[in-house]
Design a protein around this nucleic acid. Sequence first.
DNA 1: GCCTAATGTGTAACCCGTTACATATATAGT
DNA 2: ACTATATATGTAACGGGTTACACATTAGGC
Lengths: 325, 325
Amino acid sequence: MTTIRDVAKLADVSVATVSRVINDKGYVNKDTKNRVEAAIQALDYRPNDVARSLFKGKSKMIALFVPDIKNPFFPELARAVEDISNQYGYTFILCNTDNNNKKEITYLQALSQKSIDGIILVSSTMSSTQMKGIKVPMIALDRKMESDLISVTVNNREGARQAVQYLKQTGCQRIAHIAGPETVSSAIHRLGGYVDEVKNDAWFTSHYIRAGDYSMDKAFEETKQLLEIEPDVDGIFVANDVMGVGVLKAIKALNKRVPKDISVISFDGIELGTISTPSLTTMAQPIYHIGKRAAEILIQKIEHPKTKVQSEEHEVTLTIRESTR
Amino acid sequence: MTTIRDVAKLADVSVATVSRVINDKGYVNKDTKNRVEAAIQALDYRPNDVARSLFKGKSKMIALFVPDIKNPFFPELARAVEDISNQYGYTFILCNTDNNNKKEITYLQALSQKSIDGIILVSSTMSSTQMKGIKVPMIALDRKMESDLISVTVNNREGARQAVQYLKQTGCQRIAHIAGPETVSSAIHRLGGYVDEVKNDAWFTSHYIRAGDYSMDKAFEETKQLLEIEPDVDGIFVANDVMGVGVLKAIKALNKRVPKDISVISFDGIELGTISTPSLTTMAQPIYHIGKRAAEILIQKIEHPKTKVQSEEHEVTLTIRESTR
DNA sequence: GCCTAATGTGTAACCCGTTACATATATAGT
DNA sequence: ACTATATATGTAACGGGTTACACATTAGGC
């Protein structure tokens, strides 16, 4: 590796001058600058980022915590964050937490030892106590956290209301909900929106709500049980698309038809929903956009710590496909 | 941040001794060790990895280059690599290259400035010339590269042969192939395996081969054209599952039935293939396993540079689902 | 022509662990 | 008792940029 001292020697200047040229900072005579640049070229010199990081206490790296990248909702988020990171010169670190608080804490520790500049969290397990001591800039994405951390989310409650309203508009009389995990804010709000819309209906009882966990398999099981207990269900609002596919499978397994017998609407708008048969009507989130915004806000926080940044709540879009009448 | 010098002061020893305690290296008296450990505890001291990296010239970070994490084949690979990285104490960096050689080179440069310890490449665009100068340990995954870089792949040619054989066994008489990009080794070998099996058949002409690009949309278009030109096709071997879904859609759009009129078998074994209707019969790769092996071999290369490591070619498994008779 | 400000450049300390080397004491072997 | 080793610990250089500070020179203003 050639170092700044090699360059300095070849250009016959001090390392300070080379540093000034590299960073375009401070006064440097034009001729000197040319000489230094020629030396840099000649030696194919590239500054060592680790040395830089050590001095600055910053690493130009940001991390994204997601439960599991295999869940098809997260790759697009990850892609957005990586794109923006890159654009601003940051390196992107991906951490799969499995919703495991211990793993999160371990990552947090490891990353702060590496002088990570900022972290984007898709998490529901981290408590405000745990976040107290941490001075790394952070932002919550997709889910709000117990702590008052700034977040970028969508308007889950309103989106859920619209979904249920749409089912009603298309003629559904008995609308069930396959909910997400009760520890996750997005799931809570989607459930809340559903309840808003059905709580005053004569037919409504809590039997119409089944607790899923955002996974396909659980949704499959819950739907089968639901339809046994409440066979008159003619519409299901599912808390996410992955579960939506499970619901579709369950309905098919029971020899009912979608949307003829039962309409299904879910939430997220991932590509998976276009592949199932029938394709899923869904409340589509601007997934890439929220990932992008989270990264942008985080970088703003990192580079201009005094600027006040605010939480954002984005809109979802009813995307009508084949699973509703 | 508390530093090693703070700890040394509190424990009333030199920094060298603290370092010895931290790294469990060299002689340290038991009492001294206890005192140092108490001081570390008291100050909640954690060594600065950046300083360590600077001295060692190693960062304990490895990167994975994939074309696009949104392609559902890659998340599982990424997950495997991340798991293994973590297990060995490495931090995991994800890079989306979009099959863009410029991006790859930019990443390579940026990462080597950060003293990256190793890189796993899913790439087909990097030439051996470009790799010449690079002394970072690397390994190819899923695709072989032009250069003689060690790789972890599956036996694509043999898998393709088995796929075509299976179609024949189940009664297909005219078997077409939707190929992957001709620049990608896996696609080339899958095409090769197909040709091996059909080249001597009387009916075979090159019209039965259509060039896809591993994307769903292209496969959709190509299949429609294929079936127009060769309406007697009763079996299609598709180079990957994502395209398999596109093929299914095209066949449906033409009002033919799978597997009644046309059997479809694809390659990869991603979860997506279980969600389509009908679900896809496929040659399943041990995706997680090859990702794991690539990471393990890379780390072996990093930590024990003299040990000889070898390329690995893993087996694929015929996974029969609904898209074949 | 004189003073101030702008311009130009170098020295050395600093960021924080690591380790070669020096030094010192204790233990073992004969 | 004496040397060879094992044990124990400290000092200071090192890795490679960055920058405060000092010093020197040039330009500008009047």
